[in-house]
């Protein structure tokens, strides 16, 4: 069963802080997981234009990729995916029994690395559309 938590008293600042990091991690993981599965349904729908024929597939992809909004959404999707992967790996390690002591640090590290990878990828993702 998922554990319930006792937030402790408001003055107990240390407990309040550790509650927050774990809670944010949980929330972000949920949000990014739902975005990814939502994307997968859309993705298969778009790719399945190939069933109608080669031209339909090519035109759909060229059409979508020429829209700036699609490029920006792709950057967003990358951020979502990178966070879900890194945080997911972090959770897998915790399940295997290591890393719980450093869970806040590893969560912040996931955030920073996600940010860095996302920013570094912007040029590649938007090239040719603006």
């Amino acid at each position: 069963m998922s554990q319930s938590y006792d937030r402790g008293t408001v003055e107990d600042f240390g407990r309040w802080r550790s509650f927050t990091a774990g809670m944010w991690a949980w929330l972000f993981h949920k949000f990014t997981g739902w975005v990814l599965i939502g994307y997968l349904f859309t993705h298969i729908a778009v790719l399945s234009t190939a069933l109608t024929g080669e031209a339909a597939y090519n035109d759909t992809i060229v059409g979508l990729e020429s829209l700036a909004i699609v490029r920006l959404l792709e950057v967003g999707l990358l951020a979502v995916a990178v966070f879900h992967i890194l945080n997911g790996v972090r959770l897998l390690f915790i399940d295997l029994g290591t890393g719980l002591e450093a869970q806040e640090e590893s969560f912040y590290a996931s955030l920073v690395i996600t940010g860095a990878i996302t920013i570094a990828s912007v040029p590649t993702f938007v090239s040719g559309v603006f």
């Binding site: 998922s2 774990g22 915790i94």
Partner: peptide, 11 residues
């Protein structure tokens, strides 16, 4: 306080 948050039943 939970040590660890998971949405799943771990067993």
């Amino acid at each position: 306080m939970a040590e660890h948050y998971s949405s799943f039943d771990r067993s």
